[in-house]
Design a protein around this nucleic acid. Sequence first.
DNA 1: TTAGGGTTAG
Length: 524
Amino acid sequence: MKLGQGNKAFDLYVMMQKLGIEANKFVFMCALQICGCEKGASTGRIIHDELIKSGYELDLSIQNTLVDMYAKCGSLAESCSIFSKQQERNIVSWGAMIAGYAAHGVGIEGLETFRRMYQKGFMPNSIIYLSVLKACGSIEALEQGRLLHMEIIRDGMHLDEVVGSAIIDMYLKCGSLLDADTVFEDLAIKDVVSWSAMILGYADQGHGQKALNLYSDMLSEDICPNKLTFLGVLKACWLVGNLRQGLYMHSEVVSQSLDSDLVVANTLIDMYAKCGALNEARHVFDLLSSKDGVSYNSMIQGYVQNEHSLPALDIYSSMRCRGIRPNKVTFPTILKACSNIRALIEARQIHANVITEEFDNDSTIQSAIVDMYAKCGSMVEAINMFERMQSRDIVLWGTIFTGCAQSGDWQLARQYFLKMQGYNLKPDAWVFNSILTACSHAGEVNEGRWYFLSMIHDYRIKPSADHFNCIIDLLGRSGRLDEASDFFQSIPEQLDINGWTALLTSCRSYGNNKLGNECFSEAM
DNA sequence: TTAGGGTTAG
């Protein structure tokens, strides 16, 4: 088990049972640890039952291992239930519980458990500090992290390079790059972990160039990069848009035989796609023998970000054919692909997939569906989803109005304008722009005028060039060329090319060459 | 029995 061959070790455990040899406490502990890293919670529960039958459930080490096993399997509820029922606890019990919270991003509970540990008179050791630092990082609790850092210095543990890199990581995750720099500079031993933590942290915070500089500093210190260093550097490459360096890093990855590593390969796909090198991304994707959901998501996203919606839909189909389930990252992306090319039939199918995968209550995905139906021109379906949603922000309302604008449905726009007021939401400049566009497409002059005036007087929104253009377009399309021209002349400082275009197009549609020529020479 | 750095969206 300690050599990482958990499955083989577990086979021995099964064989032992078949031979009728009773397990002792150490065998149970090993079996539980294998469940924590390989077998999962369902096997863990079976072992748990078996050890209860053998009378080991009151043993402190066994209880601690159970807390750890359930936490590692992601079942914090079961972990917490055992921990809270413990009659007696030692530092390991507290450590296992805090590590569980920290690993799953439940930082507040992690810190709270740490506080309770103190109250019960336990002094933290370096292992406990590592988990609490992780908990702080996971919730970006910078002030708590600083206090912890001071405590660690007081206990003299900051000189340990393992604790040191955990402190660096905490500061980076909390966004305090200066603190991370200071701690890193003071580290007596800078190893590949602390260097990589710095590189990854800077890249995560969006500082690509600094991450690349750190990487060359690291090389000049003769530290050999590993998998995690590459993850940071690859991210830095796309942040600064340096495809050439990305290609070079790819060759470095290959020279360390890390290109078959799933996480590295996924990062390569993402790096190439974000640099716009779709062929290279696809090459890595195709060569990857066992793709996971992230591989598919990264490839789909790469296509969508570069406006290649059809291949994105193809990858989505093959993802489903191979039984890889789309998730909360896949859906917003693939729905956007449908919107881009107005693929309503495919979009409906994907909406059905959202329901079967039980993501239909996710507000981000719901918003994406409203947007997709509106952009695909199916306002009935867009409204249907919109009405089902629990909470709607101004952007989502705007999506409905944009849909109305595209389909020229001024009556629907009016209905939702009134509805919005019922929710005490103030329409913004963008909403008015959409409503005016809807009126203009429908030739509703009076309606459009009313909104324009209401926007200025009731909502105190200063009209932009887009709003003026809508009005010119509205007047021009309905043949009121003189009115349009007068309106146009009254606001010369607001004119832009779209306004001139709207006016000239209307002159042409209505065969008014005289006005058209006048406008043209004025525009010139 | 608890232990440092990990990929995809908006």
